[in-house]
């Protein structure tokens, strides 16, 4: 009996969120006397095995096929379903991402398995899984339960810490076959994001811009602040709407969930749908000229004032502090 973790690969490396989930699965498995296994699905899946071993997987399934170069839901559902049927795990845990959200429902239906999406914590029970998940734009926590085998669980980024625990893993390469005749979407084009240098969902520091950032000058200040900190750039829906920031940078209920050590919200009012994506950050700084803005309810440190006036000396002071 095992717990199986799907290891996502993004931009040529293993997603940290997947290692967080793998670390948690290792602990749950140890407590229950289960094996912890991982699956890699990628054109060069074997290149990532060593990294997965470092985080304690006892067995690693690999599925290699050129089709996995780009994200496509139909082959990914097929590959995952095949691995799960082979491994017969009690639980399949996946770090949540747009790619995982794209396939989780179809996978659950294909395997006739219950699914819990975007949990913030989970544990095993006799009959399945018990978990906590933020609901209603992360205003509340629902305690939920799923009964069955396997149970599919997707886990929010930042829910657990990634901790190394090297293990000698057995490796099993599984063949991939795919019914080419079945109708499926055809990929025409991939439009890459022109976001910051650091990936948002993995970042320790995030500088996020809202409607208060209204022009290229403001954007330049955000870029500079992010650069000083080595931060990724996030945004509210308002500035994505007007095309000032790319959609991949949107944080919130529709956008990404982040939980960095430091989140600096600049000119963001703090609507509940935005907070849904960032309220779990460790230290939150809010810079807003309206002292009554709801973002201050989340802020560890709140600065009341005009961002165009506050950011230049802040960038300067941080540059000095970093020396």
């Amino acid at each position: 009996m095992s717990i199986l973790t799907y290891i996502g690969i993004q931009g040529g490396s293993v997603r940290r969120a997947s290692l967080e989930v793998l670390s948690q699965c290792r602990k749950l498995a140890a407590a229950q006397g289960l094996a912890v296994e991982a699956v890699l699905i990628h054109p060069q899946a074997s290149d990532f095995v060593a990294q997965v071993q470092r985080y304690g997987a006892q067995k690693v399934y690999t599925v290699e096929d050129p089709i996995f170069e780009q994200h496509l839901n139909a082959p990914l559902v097929g590959a995952l379903a095949a691995v799960i049927e082979q491994a017969q795990p009690r639980v399949v845990a996946l770090a949540s991402s747009e790619a995982v959200k794209d396939v989780l429902g179809a996978l659950a239906a294909r395997l006739d398995a219950p699914a819990l999406a975007d949990v913030s914590s989970f544990e095993l029970t006799e009959a399945g899984v018990r978990a906590r998940r933020p609901v209603l734009a992360a205003k509340f926590i629902a305690r939920v339960e799923a009964e069955g085998q396997p149970v599919l669980v997707s886990v929010r980024a930042g829910a657990y810490d990634a901790e190394e625990a090297p293990a000698q893993a057995e490796i099993e390469a599984l063949p991939f076959s795919f019914d080419e005749a079945k109708p499926r979407p055809t990929l025409r084009e991939v439009i890459g994001a022109s976001g910051g240098a650091v990936d948002l969902s993995e970042a320790r520091y995030v500088v996020a811009a809202g409607r208060g950032v209204r022009d290229e000058e403001g954007k330049k200040l955000i870029d500079e602040l992010a650069e000083v900190l080595g931060a990724a750039i996030g945004s509210s829906r308002a500035v994505v709407d007007v095309g000032l920031f790319p959609a991949t940078s949107q944080v919130g209920q529709t956008g990404k969930v982040v939980s960095p050590d430091l989140y600096i919200a600049v000119g963001i009012s703090g609507a509940i749908q935005h907070a849904a994506g960032m309220s779990n950050s460790r230290v939150i700084v809010a810079i807003n000229k309206d002292a009554d803005a709801p973002i201050f309810n989340y802020a560890t440190y709140g600065l009341v004032g005009d961002l165009y006036v506050i950011l230049p000396p802040l960038i300067e002071a941080l540059r000095e502090a970093k020396g």
Partner: peptide, 25 residues
Amino acid sequence: PRTRVLGYENLPEREPGRVLDGDPA
């Protein structure tokens, strides 16, 4: 249904923060 809600809870409260107001620099 094979998944169900056992109950709801409020989010844990965040510690109240500190507001800095005054000269921007």
